[in-house]
């Protein structure tokens, strides 16, 4: 690096890392972090959406509920997981599990990694918008601590729908955005190929979100990224979860949900 400039990392490169097919998935993290994990299924309304997984187990000695988007690592798995894009029943399953967590006094841990909510005919027929809205509504007052971690792509409403939390973290090579760079480029410049420029403009990296006070911290990934070392990435996440939970478990429920309301209440930039 002596005679070359240290290049600023481009947003699109982080987008690529965030989507890297060898990154750990939610079930990988659960394997490393959660003991006695039991996966639970179904929304009790329509079906079991495989794009979102959830269940119960122990983080060290604390009983927790864990929920997350689930991507596949190859085409076959991805078709089964719908590339981590949930239908309404996925968000409804997540909410069902979260309400169980509240009922039995378990903290909730959410792993966020989705291109977005699935845009399909059935999804619209069964109320994709309602499913997302209702999660935002209910999660705002769940009387149990919630921690969300963006582990890959935080794709718009589909990510937000299971990410309302008391503390939000992002891994260092992840993104969280209102729209995908490709979607943004095709709307703005009628050219999905200009995703590079859109990624830059959208300010969607972990650093950007920390700057805008949307997230509470960044969890550094090892080496060139989480895909290179699943286990030590999981270890980093685990230690963040434990220290954060130890702090949140001391807060009584009404204070907790009041602080959660204020957290989101402050988001936004305007003049008056």
């Amino acid at each position: 690096m002596s005679h070359t400039e240290i290049k600023k990392i481009k947003a699109i490169d982080i987008v690529k890392l965030a989507r890297h097919t060898k990154r750990p998935t939610t079930l990988d993290y659960i394997g490393f972090i959660i003991k006695d994990f039991i996966e639970l299924h179904g929304d009790r309304r329509f079906s079991d959406d495989k794009a979102i997984v959830g269940g119960i187990g122990f983080l060290e000695n604390i009983a927790v509920t864990v929920i997350g988007h689930q991507k596949g690592r190859n085409v076959k798995e991805n078709i089964r997981r719908n590339f981590g894009m949930a239908n309404p029943e996925g968000y409804r399953k997540a909410l069902r599990l979260m309400e169980e967590a509240e009922r039995f006094g378990r903290p909730i841990i959410n792993f966020i990694d989705t291109p977005g909510a699935y845009p399909g005919i059935g999804a619209e027929e069964r109320g994709q918008a309602e499913a997302i809205a209702y999660n935002l509504y209910k999660m705002s007052t769940l009387r149990t601590p919630i921690i969300s971690i963006v582990t890959g792509e935080g794709g718009s409403g589909g990510a937000l729908a299971i990410s309302i939390a008391d503390r939000i973290y992002m891994l260092s090579n992840t993104i969280y955005s209102v729209i995908s760079p490709e979607g943004c480029a095709s709307i703005l410049w009628k050219d999905a190929g200009k995703a590079d420029a859109a990624a830059e403009s959208l300010k969607l990296t972990a650093k950007d979100l920390f700057y805008f006070k949307i997230i509470d911290g960044i969890i550094e990934e090892p080496g060139n990224g989480a895909h290179e070392d699943h286990e030590s990435t999981a270890k980093q996440i685990k230690s963040t979860l434990i220290s954060t939970l130890n702090e949140l478990l001391l807060i009584e429920p009404s204070t907790l949900i009041d602080q959660r309301y204020q957290k989101y209440r402050k988001m936004g930039v305007f003049s008056e």
Binding site: I132, L136, S156, Y176, V178, L202, F212, M267, G268
Partner: peptide
């Protein structure tokens, strides 16, 4: 960007 998305939560 993300500030708009968070208005949904708010």
């Amino acid at each position: 960007g993300i500030l708009s998305l968070m208005q949904m939560a708010k």
